[in-house]
Amino acid sequence: MSLSDEDVRRMARLARLALDDGEVTRFGDELGRILAFVDALRVAVLEEAPAALSGPWARTPFLRDDRVEEAGHPELYQAQAPESRDGYYLVPRVIEP
């Protein structure tokens, strides 16, 4: 079983991953085999499952009080940015509709 090139390219497009033709072929084969393997689950007959996980997940979640405790630090944070100017992050211009 193998995933079609078209499926692979559709996933790559959704995930914004540039793939070369070799990768498309290889991923088609590998993903096909992985999906065939996890199909064991797809065909498994399951009884009614609990609505949610229990154990560490079974509790009322923590909610934060509404307080401002942090500021932005554009200079510090934008030191990591490939491109920024005047406090803005920059990307190639997006063509708006």
Binding site: R64, V68, E70, G72, P74, G87, Y88, Y89
Partner: peptide
Amino acid sequence: ESKLFSPTSTRFGAPPNTQAG
């Protein structure tokens, strides 16, 4: 006062990215 998932301010009109934590 603060954002939905973070403790930074929601005030309108601040200089760019000064309220982006």
